[in-house]
Design a binder for these strands. Sequence first.
DNA 1: TAAACATATGAATATTTGTTCATATGTGGA
DNA 2: TCCACATATGAACAAATATTCATATGTTTA
Lengths: 103, 103
Amino acid sequence: MNTETAKKFLPEETSLYDLAELYKIFGDSTRIKILYALFEFDLSVGELCEILNMTQSAVSHQLRVLKNAKLVKYRKLGKSVIYSLADSHVKTILDQGMEHINE
Amino acid sequence: MNTETAKKFLPEETSLYDLAELYKIFGDSTRIKILYALFEFDLSVGELCEILNMTQSAVSHQLRVLKNAKLVKYRKLGKSVIYSLADSHVKTILDQGMEHINE
DNA sequence: TAAACATATGAATATTTGTTCATATGTGGA
DNA sequence: TCCACATATGAACAAATATTCATATGTTTA
């Protein structure tokens, strides 16, 4: 095999890097739980804490990661902040992964 | 929102954990490069080193991760070990992710 | 306006993880 | 059989990351 030829088939370095970054975000069960919860309902930070049974700080930190990745968005409602999915594409991706592990 | 109701919509704890583990594997650009290279050709460890421009040890360690996750398989050929994709599903998953980042 | 509440943030810590270095293992050719 | 080659592996190290703790920020309501 001519390895120079094989190199030409690889995507751009930046694409590969970005793709890894995207999957890194899904690579944590806390964040996956948050996303699954948001598939069904828009939820406040406090509600997410109850659902995940985790501290407010831990949840907030992870929400920031998801927010930076533009996977979730938020709106303010009274004293609360309501989070929701930013992108329906995310569900497709996670469903695909779920399908894989259930083979 | 009744958070007890929301909890019922979450997948099993073990599923969520396994899903995170799967994405963790994709969350590294070295492993993604290996997978993309194997989409096109079956390759020996040495060839992968050339293509990725990485040391034999680093590549071998990552191949083990991919092997443990059953994403790649291997066969022996003379002194070499030839790696190939274990599962065509993997390409679908990465393509989906690639589609997302190119939005 | 003061107090109570909801959320965000920064520092510290512990754990995980990717690469390197050194070396072990195993196979084919001379 | 002995050597050269290809790959695997273990320990060490550095970097990244998730959670906790303490506290800051900002908003509502009494």
